Computed example of a mutant assay.
Amino acid sequence: MSMIDSLPLRRLYSTIRVDSSADHDVHWLYMHADAAPGVRPCFRRPMMVDMHQFLDSISREDQRRPGRLQHLVLASDAGAFNLGGDLEVFSELIRQQDGAALLRYARSCIDGVYRFHQGLNGDFRTIALLQGDALGGGLEMALSCHTIVAEEGVGMGLPEVLFGLFPGMGAYNFLCRRVSPQLAERIILDGRVYSSEEMHAMGVVDVLVPRGQGEQAVRDLIRQQQRIPHSCLAMNAVRRLSNPVTYQELLDITQVWVDTALALGDKSLRTMDRLVRAQTRRSAMDHA
């Protein structure tokens, strides 16, 4: 193989950065490639569009390698992994009582977590690499992956209860496949931010490594799994059969989330607004 053949293939998007191996067996998707002061590292709609387009591109029939193990790694170019749903959008749509738009946003989110949980077409092992905080929907996306690799000192939590909501895009479903339902409910209702060390002790984080060693840990994990490709692909199928998270289940819970959001009052909306300002300040500090 020549040096050129071994270089990663890159695709250009405005909000994400993607590196793909020359054989298309390993893909790294970095969120927030447009990170800049004032750009909040959350699930902004343009980034969600880019992410879905990329997932579509590697799921197409002409890109598929049936029966061959592939890997998709979800990471971030920002100081945070992901701070969750776009609270500015939520606040605006709730004030307008636009439930249809809220549901469209939520469905885009569950489309993403469902695809990561399924391993796209079943041939992928998905890995979340947490080198910065994962909150709300950001943590839900990480939980949907087959494996969570986190560096020490990362904050992980579901703070939606602070403004009267709950994490409605898969948190309970995916947590219950890692911890007991009682613990999952406590994590959601506590609304506190846990450390990655605490989450590892509870069984939520699969691999915990020191700061700066996350990418290498992911590469090591991929090499280990590539030695046993048929076993990993079989485990994907077993997971779907023995303890499935169905799309309809996610959709039904999302409707509960929309109904709850539309019932929020001014106090909750003002809390959202304060969190948006805090996220914006945090983004500015990360780029100072």
Score class of each variant (00 low, 15 high):
residue 252 D to E: 11
residue 197 E to L: 07
residue 239 R to P: 09
residue 201 A to F: 10
residue 259 D to K: 06
residue 245 V to W: 06
residue 170 G to M: 09
residue 209 V to C: 13
residue 222 I to Y: 15
residue 269 L to Y: 07
residue 265 G to A: 11
residue 194 Y to I: 09
residue 271 T to E: 15
residue 205 V to A: 08
residue 252 D to K: 12
residue 271 T to D: 15
residue 191 G to V: 08
residue 241 L to F: 15
residue 149 V to G: 01
residue 212 G to E: 07
residue 271 T to V: 11
residue 167 P to Q: 03
residue 186 R to P: 03
residue 204 V to N: 02
residue 254 T to N: 06
residue 209 V to K: 12
residue 226 Q to R: 15
residue 160 E to Q: 14
residue 148 I to E: 01
residue 192 R to E: 05
residue 143 L to G: 00
residue 135 L to A: 11
residue 216 Q to A: 12
residue 203 G to W: 06
residue 190 D to W: 01
residue 248 Q to R: 14
residue 149 V to I: 11
residue 166 F to N: 00
residue 274 R to P: 00
residue 198 E to Y: 05
residue 188 I to T: 05
residue 199 M to G: 11
residue 167 P to V: 10
residue 216 Q to W: 05
residue 248 Q to F: 10
residue 224 Q to I: 10
residue 212 G to C: 11
residue 198 E to V: 01
residue 197 E to I: 06
residue 200 H to V: 02
residue 231 S to F: 14
residue 220 D to C: 09
residue 208 L to N: 02
residue 262 L to F: 03
residue 201 A to I: 05
residue 220 D to N: 03
residue 237 A to Q: 08
residue 206 D to G: 01
residue 139 L to N: 07
residue 132 G to T: 01
residue 218 V to K: 10
residue 212 G to T: 03
residue 225 Q to W: 15
residue 261 A to L: 08
residue 200 H to E: 14
residue 273 D to Y: 03
residue 216 Q to N: 12
residue 197 E to C: 05
residue 205 V to G: 07
residue 206 D to C: 02
residue 171 A to S: 12
residue 229 P to F: 14
residue 249 E to Y: 05
residue 157 G to Q: 03
residue 201 A to W: 09
residue 258 V to E: 12
residue 175 L to V: 04
residue 234 A to P: 06
residue 211 R to N: 08
residue 131 Q to C: 14
residue 252 D to R: 12
residue 161 V to G: 09
residue 204 V to K: 02
residue 135 L to R: 13
residue 259 D to P: 06
residue 132 G to R: 10
residue 182 Q to N: 08
residue 239 R to D: 08
residue 263 A to N: 13
residue 153 G to F: 06
residue 153 G to P: 04
residue 160 E to K: 06
residue 187 I to C: 04
residue 169 M to F: 14
residue 166 F to R: 04
residue 170 G to I: 06
residue 168 G to E: 09
residue 147 T to M: 12
residue 215 E to P: 06
residue 142 A to W: 11
residue 182 Q to E: 12
residue 133 D to F: 02
residue 236 N to D: 06
residue 225 Q to V: 03
residue 252 D to T: 13
residue 229 P to S: 10
residue 266 D to R: 10
residue 272 M to Q: 04
residue 203 G to E: 07
residue 226 Q to H: 15
residue 197 E to T: 13
residue 147 T to A: 01
residue 231 S to T: 15
residue 244 P to Q: 01
residue 155 G to Y: 08
residue 189 L to V: 14
residue 133 D to W: 05
residue 218 V to E: 13
residue 191 G to K: 14
residue 271 T to Q: 14
residue 158 L to I: 11
residue 137 G to W: 05
residue 161 V to P: 13
residue 168 G to C: 03
residue 249 E to A: 15
residue 164 G to A: 05
residue 187 I to K: 10
residue 256 V to D: 12
